[in-house]
Design a binder for these strands. Structure first.
Length: 824
DNA sequence: AGCACGCCGACT
DNA sequence: GTCGGCGTGCTC
């Protein structure tokens, strides 16, 4: 501000810093043309050219007068929004996440914005065919509509060529508002199904000899060849091959795939894919809280007077949902908005329908299964305050709340709140606490088995603590029984994986027309195949893991990269035919069980059985409608499912849980077992839980059956203290990756020692991670374990500097470094 | 993320 | 020679 004359104000030269939806280490500056000075504002999207041809919608982060010194800033092409679509608090949140999780701001932006708000130049515009034109159109709009009437679909590049100008976004936006066109990536019309890209081989190459010739042609293009081979392999088992699956499984990049398309070898076809369906249940709308619930509700409200965050520790089926509903009601009555976070899987179940029924139109649901257009719609309805309550998975923390008053994080211990891949690797529960802080909203963390961290915070008065010890409606906690597998084996009472006790119990339950859930935390059929003669075990060609045998496909699968190959009958190492199966998964349990109970209807709930669009909902609703007697599942069955008629829970083999090489293994085991057990007898009937284990006297099993959470917590805390793990320290994992193992070893060693120079014994490693090679990249891990007294800010800034310095060395440029703050 | 640039090996 | 494949660096 130089105190210039007012009339010159509009001639001010302004620059903007924008965030691009790309993983870039810094933000970029653009110049605002005078005529757009007034329209540009922080939080609006602008159209910019980035690089040679690419056009993106970027987000305005700040506006300044200072021209960049070392380069000529490009002009902004256009302003997309009339009003900001991002609030000031969101920008603060993005900033915090970028720093805290040590990622790029563009990563946060990509994660935060639904794709529909990230228009790029290849976006396809389609004419809505049945919409009559009622409004008056401008000349340019008329030209565009005429072209679309002829051609149906145009890209944004096509449109700029057609109109001979780069500024096409306002025209597109205006036509979108007039409802005459839609964006093809977003499926707008309700009855129009979701489109998915499928790949097919051109008819020419489906001829045997042409295909053979093609193999020779592609010999020098391994990526392309691999894509072709993968296509052929997939074609054997499925007749429609989704493009993303082909790209994923063949490790073929977009570029190589595009070359194949350009050569006319592959063609891509968009096809409709069916949607999820919904089902109802009989939830009582006008409920009364029980005495215990009322006490808890009042407890929470009292705690809120002092604390911003309250941990609600209520045993399974204690009716936490009703308490949430009362809290939500109150927040809405106060004119605020509410965010209700749930683990992804729980969103497909009753709790959503219940709350939706209760609050009607004022509620939005936000999770990954929704298409782009629905997500944009939800985004806008949150922004303009039409939605008072949003139920969502972790990404819902990014929505543009205006006056957030309450955040509920249900099942707060759930590890799915932590995003693993891609960056930002954020913990939505922690982000929610920060979000609450930004909005001065209250936060309730709810769980029957709180995470050690949250409970620690509660005991140390950082959070308030409210406990419910009683199940709703006086339903008793299930009866537990532990069965020693070794003893049962001695007594010859084991039939395959099932003890006599479990089989008797299942028989009884089925007779009474009730239902059973069996838990086995491993998918697939056999864990591994192993040659009894020489000990050879088939391994993945891309990763350092043994392959898992899946019987349904008859193949050996890699659970890390999706690679699969046909199974072996003869050992490729020694020629022996004695191939043994070691370990077992849900698939095997299902098969064995159907031999014992041929009459029973059995279903399986795991990643494999729910891969199809409707899979998950179908399995759950079938079980709910009692079409299934026995449900066998991995940890998916533990996550917030609520069935009335389940009276028996069986844990096939608890030992597998305890043996993970992770400091949280016991905590997780407790949570998983307690949550699984909690699925039993949720209404008037008391449930039974049978836990089978070799190590039947394990303290975790004991603590689960005696419902001694606090004892488990205390035991764990001693361990954590002893080995200086969270909550006594903070962890940062640094994964270093490269295709060349030797180079990686040198690089990792060098990186660790440089870092150790600055941070001393806080730096551990480099270590070989559990899986040391994934998708042909070798991995080494360096860990920073920083105690609570050290400033984590300082540690992070040292880490940042070390990485920057490390990457200036030309030998290590290509080494990939990933940071995971607070790993889970 | 995409795109240009430049190096490298295989074929006219 | 030259052409396509593929690794590297840059984009305000």
């Amino acid at each position: 501000m130089d105190g210039g004359l007012l009339e010159f104000k509009e001639r001010e030269t302004l620059f903007v810093e924008v965030v691009l939806p790309l993983s870039l280490s810094k933000n970029y500056m653009y110049r605002i043309p005078f005529e757009l000075n007034e329209q540009v504002a922080v939080g609006k999207r602008v159209v910019v050219q980035f690089g040679k041809n690419k056009i993106y919608t970027a987000l305005v982060k700040s506006i300044s007068h200072a021209a960049p010194e070392h380069y000529q800033a490009k002009y902004i092409i256009d302003v997309v929004d009339e009003h900001p679509i991002i609030t000031a608090q969101q920008l603060q949140l993005w900033d915090w996440m970028t720093n805290y999780y040590m990622c790029n701001e563009g990563d946060v932006m990509s994660a935060a914005l639904p794709t529909g708000l990230k228009l790029a130049s290849e976006t396809i515009i389609v004419r809505k065919d049945d919409e009559p034109i009622e409004e008056v159109l401008s000349d340019k709009e008329q030209i565009l509509i005429t072209a679309l009437n002829k051609q149906q679909r145009l890209t944004i590049d096509d449109i700029s060529a057609l109109l001979g100008q780069k500024t096409v976004y306002p025209i597109i936006n205006s036509l979108l508002e007039k409802d005459l066109i839609y964006i093809a990536e977003e499926v707008v019309e309700k009855y129009k199904p979701l489109l998915k890209s499928f790949v097919s081989l051109s008819p020419f190459y489906q001829e045997e000899e042409n295909l053979k010739a093609l193999f020779d042609i592609l010999e020098r293009a391994p990526k392309q060849l691999n894509a072709l081979l993968t296509y052929i392999k997939l074609y054997r088992t499925q007749n429609m091959i989704p493009k993303h699956q082909l790209l994923e499984e063949s490790d073929c990049g977009q570029a190589a795939f595009k070359t194949l398309m350009d050569k006319g070898i592959f063609t891509v076809l968009k096809r409709p894919v069916s949607r999820l369906k919904e089902n109802d249940d009989d939830f009582i709308l006008n409920f009364e809280l029980s005495e215990a619930q009322n006490t808890a509700l009042r407890g929470i409200e009292t705690e809120f007077e002092q604390k911003d965050v309250v941990l609600l520790h209520g045993v399974t089926a204690s009716g936490k949902t009703q308490i949430y509903i009362k809290l939500i009601e109150k927040a809405i009555a106060d004119g605020g908005q509410v965010l209700f976070l749930l683990p992804e899987i729980a969103l497909t179940t009753q709790i959503v329908q219940r709350i939706q029924r209760y609050f009607g139109d004022a509620i939005g649901v936000y999770h990954s299964k929704f298409n782009n257009n629905e997500r944009v719609e939800i985004w806008n309805k949150v922004l303009n305050g039409k939605y008072r309550v949003v139920l969502g998975a972790r990404s819902a923390v990014f929505l543009p709340f205006k006056d957030l008053k309450l955040i509920v994080v249900d099942e707060e211990h759930e590890s799915s709140y932590k995003q693993q891949e891609p960056s930002p690797r954020y913990q939505a529960r922690d982000v929610a606490v920060l979000l609450g802080h930004l909005h001065q909203a209250k936060v309730v963390l709810g769980s029957a088995t709180p995470s050690i961290e949250s409970y620690f915070n509660a005991l140390n008065h950082k959070y308030g603590l409210v406990v419910i010890n009683e199940r709703f409606g006086g339903v008793e906690l299930p009866l537990h029984e532990v069965v020693s597998i070794s003893e049962e084996t001695k007594k010859k009472k084991m039939v395959s994986y099932f003890s006599g006790k479990l089989i008797d119990a299942i028989t009884l339950v089925i007779e009474q027309k009730e239902q059973v859930i069996l838990f086995q935390n491993r998918r697939g059929y056999a864990t591994i195949l192993i040659c009894a003669t020489c000990g050879y075990a088939p391994k993945c060609v891309n990763c350092d893991v043994s392959l898992t045998y899946h019987k349904t496909s008859g193949k050996l699968h890699c659970h890390y990269c999706g690679y699969h190959q046909s199974s072996i009958n003869v050992c490729p190492a020694c020629g022996s035919v004695h191939i043994e199966q070691k370990g077992f998964g849900t698939e095997r349990v299902e098969e064995e069980l159907s031999l014992i109970f041929p009459e029973a209807k059995i279903a399986r709930l795991d990643v494999d059985s729910t891969r199809t669009k409707n899979g998950l909902t179908q399995i759950i609703s079938d079980f709910q409608e009692k079409k299934t007697d026995i449900l066998i599942g991995t940890q998916m069955v533990a996550k917030g499912l609520d069935f009335d008629n389940v009276t028996l829970i069986g844990v096939i083999n608890a030992d597998t849980l305890f043996n993970y090489p992770d400091f949280r293994a016991f905590e997780r085991s407790y949570q998983l077992l307690a949550q699984v057990a909690g699925r039993a007898g949720r209404r008037e009937k008391q449930g039974n839980v049978i836990i089978q284990a070799y190590d039947d006297s394990h303290r975790i099993i004991k603590q689960v059956i005696e419902n001694k959470y606090v004892e488990m917590y205390n035991d764990e805390l001693v361990e954590r203290k002893l080995f200086n793990y969270p909550p006594f320290s903070r962890l940062i994992f640094i994964n270093i990756k490269h295709k060349d193992q030797d180079l990686l070893n040198v690089a990792a060693q060098r990186f660790a020692s440089t870092l150790r120079g600055a941070l001393g014994k806080r730096v551990l490693g480099p270590e070989q991670p559990l899986v040391s090679r994934v998708r042909n990249y070798y991995i080494k891990q360096v860990i920073i374990k920083s105690d609570k007294d050290t400033s984590i800010q300082k540690v992070k800034s040292i880490l940042r500097d070390t990485i920057l310095q490390f990457q200036t060395e030309k030998d290590f440029r290509a080494v990939n470094i990933q940071i995971d703050v607070d790993p889970y």
